[in-house]
Amino acid sequence: MRFLFSLLLALMALAAQAGPPQILLDVARFRNLNRVEKGAEVEIYVTVPTQSLLYRQRAPKAFQSSAVVTLDILKADGSSAYHEVITLKPPVLNDTTIAIKNPQSFLKRILLPDGKYTLRGTVKDQYRSTGGETTVEKPLVLEGPAGPFISDVVLLSRPAAKSGGDDNFARGGYRLTRAAGGTYGRGADNVFFYTELHNAPVGQPLRVHYHLTTPDGSAADADADLTPQSGRPTTIVGQMPLGPLPDGPFTLFIEVYGGPGNKKLLAGHRAIGQRASAEFGQVSVPADR
């Protein structure tokens, strides 16, 4: 009887994990502050949902999955600018039938000269003999405008917290907890975000306008004052309520205005996210990388 029960659990786990493994690549480009070699600091936040991995029994009431992630950044001519292989070992479970298995995430910061690249991420389920590999590619263009500009907007799962730490998850004096894939699940009431303003005119207060919208025309707006910092990027952190916005994709626009009456558009950027209120908001477990 115990054997049949164990077999049933194994079959249920296999049925739940019949699809290929998944990998999410969230990329944010920030300017390298080194004035000698112009370029960008690229943050790659990699998330592997462990729901899509096969769990193997390692001991009585002990199941574990394993995945290998390969990250490549290719130059325009196809040559390699960056290559790394990372092995992920999610926590051991005593029951693979549980509904929520927290995804594994890690973040890499890579300095690159300006130019055009291709980011490629591959995840391989180590316990599958067939159908256990998935590859995702994204174009990556690095360039720094001469005038005022806003870096990529990072969507966060919780407010940016003041931090004096110096690790991969700290930037601009804040500790950032990213929303994997820009997705906000059940219980999420706000969109939190972080970005940086460069080359802003110093000595005058600016106005920041936030605009949150969805394809059906639903929208929310807010304004805030901003005082540019001299000699370094000016951080922009905030939040917008999701409120009655429907499920599905949304776009967050961040615009900075200056000049007489703060009516002249100086810089703007956008980020695209997803609201999925019927899904549980899983917590990403940062891997030690």
Results as ranks from 00 to 15, higher is better:
G165H: 02
G39A: 11
E133G: 01
P103Y: 05
I86C: 07
A276R: 15
S6D: 15
N168K: 09
S277I: 05
P145L: 02
L119K: 07
P233C: 04
Q51L: 13
L206Y: 08
I236N: 12
L142S: 04
L8C: 02
L88P: 05
K38S: 14
I44Y: 05
L197Y: 08
G121E: 06
T96G: 03
A278L: 15
H83W: 06
R128H: 06
A10R: 02
G268A: 11
H269W: 01
P60G: 03
D167M: 03
P201C: 09
Q22K: 14
D216F: 00
T87R: 15
A76G: 01
A224S: 15
H211E: 09
T135M: 12
G217D: 06
H269D: 10
R120L: 04
G78R: 05
Q17H: 12
G203H: 10
V48I: 11
H209V: 12
P91Y: 14
A222N: 13
G131N: 12
A224C: 04
R35C: 01
K61C: 02
G121H: 04
G258I: 02
G231Y: 09
R186M: 14
P91G: 05
A15L: 07
S66H: 10
K263P: 00
D166K: 10
Y45P: 00
T235M: 10
Q229D: 13
I150W: 04
T195H: 12
V285C: 01
D216Q: 10
Q17L: 00
K38H: 13
L33A: 13
L156H: 08
P241L: 08
A188T: 11
A16D: 14
P159M: 08
S65P: 02
S277Y: 09
Y174H: 13
S129F: 05
P286F: 11
E255C: 00
R175S: 11
D216I: 00
A59F: 10
R186F: 14
T177V: 13
S65F: 01
R2F: 13
L252R: 07
V208N: 10
G261R: 05
L33K: 07
L4V: 03
Q282S: 14
P103H: 08
A287C: 02
F280N: 09
L24H: 14
G19Q: 15
K38A: 14
R120M: 11
K124D: 12
I272D: 15
P260E: 10
L156N: 07
H269S: 11
T235C: 04
G132A: 04
D247V: 02
S52V: 01
K75P: 02
S6I: 00
D247N: 15
P201R: 07
F253M: 07
F250V: 01
S52A: 13
P228Y: 09
P159V: 05
Q126I: 00
T50K: 02
F149S: 11
L11G: 00
R171N: 06
N102L: 11
V27Y: 07
G217E: 04
D26V: 01
I44H: 04
L11Y: 04
F106S: 03
V285T: 15
V285Y: 12
V256A: 02
D72A: 07
R289F: 13
